[in-house]
Structure formats: C-alpha cells, structure tokens
C-alpha cells in the first residue's frame, strides 16, 4: 500500500470503522463504487441493446458496436478523414480562436482593471453585447466570412474572449494595493513586487480564465461545425445522423466529450499548480 492511500483511509475513518475494507467516505471506496457503477451502466446498455434487443439499433447501438466503430474509425477514413483527422480539424480552430481571444482579451481586461476611464468606456459596450450568445453570431459570421474556417474561428473567438477579458480584469483587481504599498515602503524592488505579490494572486485567476475560455471555445465550435463544415467532430455527428449511422454519431459525441475532459483537466492541473491551493474562480 502506498503511503498516500494509507493516509487518506486512516484520516477519514473513525476508530469504529477501521476494520472494514472500504470505510465510509474513503477515497478507495469512492473509486471502487464509481468503477462498479460505470461497469454496471455499460452492462445494462449492452443488455438492453444487443442481448435482449429492447431498443431499435438505429436509435441506440450496443456498447460493443460503438467501441469497435471507434477503433475502426481511428484508422479508416470517414468522409475524407480518420477520427484523428477530424479531431485535429476541430482542435486547430479551437486553439486558434482561443489564442486570438487571449491576445486581444487579456490586454483589454488588464487595461480595464488598470484604468477606470478605459473601464468606463468599454464596460457598457461589453454589457450590451454579452447577453447575445456567441452562437447567435453564426449566421452573421457566415455572411461576413463565408462557410470557411474563418467564420468558425470568429465565432469561437467570440466565445473565448469573454472569459479572457473578465478574468484578466479580475486578476488585476485581485492584487491587494495595500500589500504593494507595504512592500514598496519596505524597500522591495519592482521585480520582487511583481513576482511575490502581483503574480501569486493574479496568475491563478488568469489561468482559471484560460480554462473557462477553452471550455467555451470547444462548446461553441461544436455548434458551428454542426451548422456549416465539411470536416470536424461536429460535422461527423451531424452527417452520421443524416445517414442514420448512430454508432458513428456516438463515437463522435464521446470523442468530443473526452477531448473536453482532457483540455479542462490539463488546465485545471496547471491552475492548481500555480495557485497552490487557492483557487479563485470568476463565475460567468
């Protein structure tokens, strides 16, 4: 047994429960229950589809069918690309929209936090535009940029830029000015102030913004691809519906979900690393 599991089980279990293998509320118990439930879920899915045939396979294909289709699609092209190729097409647009969102949103947010006149000028425009969901820009984006990648990048950018602005703004405001004054009075250099006071409170908020922004970008891209695209995971899902290949549709959905988990997971780990336990989140 590794030291960490020993610690977590003993910490959360009371003396009376020490003898049981899976004490109530322990991490090990949670993982075991979770895995069991997941297995049961898949078994039930398999039972009602393949074994008893309770559901029309066009509406819900069996778990094994979806699994084998997934492996098949990794190597065999569907509509011109393999699954990896479609995922890359989607990723390229998301990352572009996300980075451009950061390049424009971060300086704007920092300026808004820094200078109250810029804040006074930008804020009303921001507040007027914000209730309109980024997705509602899709028809206009298609009129402006045509059906190509640039329309999708623009819509993804719109979705990504809002959390960038909000969290950069919040990052500036999270810095305690009294601490800066105190440090300056005690003779700290500009660099020390930046690394020891500004960065510890601002960076976690910024990284949280990056994470929320990437999540928004991913969600919006799928909508944009469902509407107008010739490659990408959203396109795969919609195209498979037209041809009633529901196993391909589920493969696309799961791939979208897994990639979403990977992004958010990676940025969440980064967020925890930079914040050392202090996670501040700006709710949208």
């Amino acid at each position: 047994m590794t030291p960490s599991t020993t610690r977590s089980t003993t910490k959360s279990s009371t003396a009376a429960r020490k003898h049981t293998l899976f004490p109530r509320g322990s991490r090990r118990r949670a993982i075991c229950v979770g895995i069991t439930a997941l297995v049961v879920f898949i078994v039930i899915w398999q039972l009602i589809t393949a074994v008893f045939g309770l559901v029309n396979p066009i509406l819900l294909p069996s778990a094994t069918e979806v699994g084998s289709r997934f492996i098949h699609m990794l190597t065999e092209p569907y509509q011109g690309h393999t699954l990896g190729g479609h995922a890359l097409t989607s990723l390229k647009i998301v990352v572009l929209g996300w980075i451009i969102g950061g390049i424009i949103g971060m300086p704007l947010g920092i300026l808004m936090g820094w200078n109250r006149w810029i804040r006074a000028a930008v804020n009303p425009i921001f507040q007027v535009l914000r209730p309109i969901p980024p997705i509602a820009w899709i028809p206009l984006a298609i009129l402006w940029f045509g059906l190509g990648d640039s329309a999708r990048i623009y819509v993804v950018w719109l979705a990504a830029v809002v959390p960038w602005i909000l969290n950069s703004f919040e990052a500036v405001r999270s810095v305690d000015s009294i601490l800066i004054s105190a440090a300056r009075m005690l003779g700290a250099s500009q660099r020390t102030i930046l690394t020891d006071i500004v960065a510890p409170s601002a960076v976690p908020v910024l990284v949280a913004g990056a994470r929320i922004s990437l999540g928004n970008a991913w969600t919006t891209l799928i909508a944009a691809e469902l509407l107008a695209a010739s490659a990408g995971l959203g396109f795969v899902a919609l195209n498979a519906r037209r041809t009633l290949d529901s196993d391909i549709m589920l493969v696309a959905m799961f791939t979208i979900g897994i990639l979403g988990v990977i992004f958010t997971g990676l940025l969440y780990l980064l967020e925890r690393a930079v914040s050392r336990g202090r996670v501040e989140e700006v709710s949208l």
């Binding site: 991913w218 909508a223 549709m249 979900g257």
Partner: peptide, 14 residues
C-alpha cells in the same frame, strides 16, 4: 463534458 449541442443529432434521432 459532451457539450449540449453535440446532443442535438441524437436528440433529433430519438
């Protein structure tokens, strides 16, 4: 983590 829009095709199918 599957965005709501990704459910649109399957919701239509069902």
């Amino acid at each position: 983590y599957i965005p709501p829009f990704a459910w649109v095709p399957i919701a239509i199918l069902w």
